[in-house]
Amino acid sequence: MKFLDLFAGIGGFRSGLEMAGNECVGFVEIDKFARQSYQAIYDTEGEWTAHDIRTVRASELPRADIWTFGFPCQDISVAGKQKGFAGKRSSLFFTVTGLIRDLEEKNRPSILLIENVKNLLSINGGWDFLKLQIELDEIGYDVEWDVLDTAEVLPQHRERVYIVGHFRGRSTRKVFPVIRSSREIDNGSNTVNTITTRYGDAQGAGSYISESKSPKIGVKQVGNIVDTGNFNNPQRGRVYDPNGQSPALNCMRGGGLEPKIVVNPHRFNKGGVKSISPTVTAGSYKDNTFVTEKMRIRKLTPLECWRLQGFTDEQFHKAEKVNSNSQLYKQAGNSVTVPVIKAIADRMGYNDNRQKTSTQSCVSRK
């Protein structure tokens, strides 16, 4: 099937849908740095594109079976001001549905694939999510949704709500629940839920982060290297045991918000790391490592963060050539998780008894 990639970011939707055999016909992304990564990673030559969804007219849009859009979450996230659909950014959801209203019914996409933070279900007492359902109903879509955790396929605890809209009369397949018989997801060139990375410390020894091919259970915070009483964002100093899951990646703006792990924790404490002093009294960064009086701590690298979202190393290195580390961190945190999209896409398509047109192809259910 053909799809249109709205609020495209670095192409998490695109990677997952293409892995399931679908074809991208165009994309919209306003952030110039995300566009640079997107165009470096994918073959976009000749595709329709636009920068700002607010300036797009329905008549410009290429025909597509699927529209994907992880519309901005800043007004919905528990970390934001929680204005919900009253906010300027998250209300862009209605900009997309406005474009659909302007299309003749025969030209409307058969499937909508939408992603946002879990808080969308409950913000403003659940009224905003009800507004979303009413809006989709009014433009002709029956909806289903589920909360899926990236930890099912990758060692990152990241719960997001995924919504699928089915245009009435097109006989599209029910998607949820998504049930997997195996946690191993093949991303073409490598198993993406293996985020093993080699890191050489000052002694020349090495430690591994998440060596296992199966997701670890639980996020294990072992301490904080900032004084949480005098610092307005304790997340900046949180330190995690590498034997647990990563916390949910965010856009990591302002520096210092990258997830931090203990290097070789068992070398410092045979029973495992029990605690870390809440305030660092001595230490310095060297080669991405913070050395305290008792142990060595390091930030996850941009590559590791991209792996935690299911991107291949090849994709990361293409983006790395056109963007700074700060942008690469931000882009990973803002992305959807590729293998989760792939799992959903594997179940999307038309019922087998529906006659396909020459421009549509069925995605077989696995």
Rank of each mutant, 00 (worst) to 15 (best):
G349N: 12
I53A: 07
I66R: 13
I66F: 13
D31V: 10
L136A: 05
N187I: 10
V363P: 00
E18A: 10
Y199E: 11
S361I: 08
T97D: 02
I344M: 09
I134L: 02
S77R: 13
I66W: 13
R170L: 03
S284E: 09
I10F: 08
V161W: 00
I209P: 06
L112E: 04
I163T: 03
S181V: 11
L308M: 03
N193L: 12
V336A: 12
E45V: 11
E47L: 14
Q309M: 08
V164Q: 07
Q133W: 03
P155Q: 01
V175M: 08
G188Y: 15
C251Q: 04
T97Q: 02
E304F: 00
Q156N: 02
I66M: 15
D313T: 09
S181Y: 08
S326K: 15
F231G: 01
V263L: 07
V117G: 06
W127Q: 02
D31L: 11
F71N: 05
K356F: 10
G254Q: 03
H266I: 01
V175C: 07
L6G: 09
L99K: 01
L308G: 04
N233I: 09
V164Y: 01
R89M: 13
R173D: 00
D75F: 14
S361M: 04
R160S: 03
P247T: 04
E304C: 00
K356T: 07
P234Y: 15
V263W: 08
G349T: 10
G349I: 08
P302R: 04
K83N: 15
C362Q: 07
G272Q: 07
T44C: 11
Q203W: 13
V25D: 11
T289Q: 07
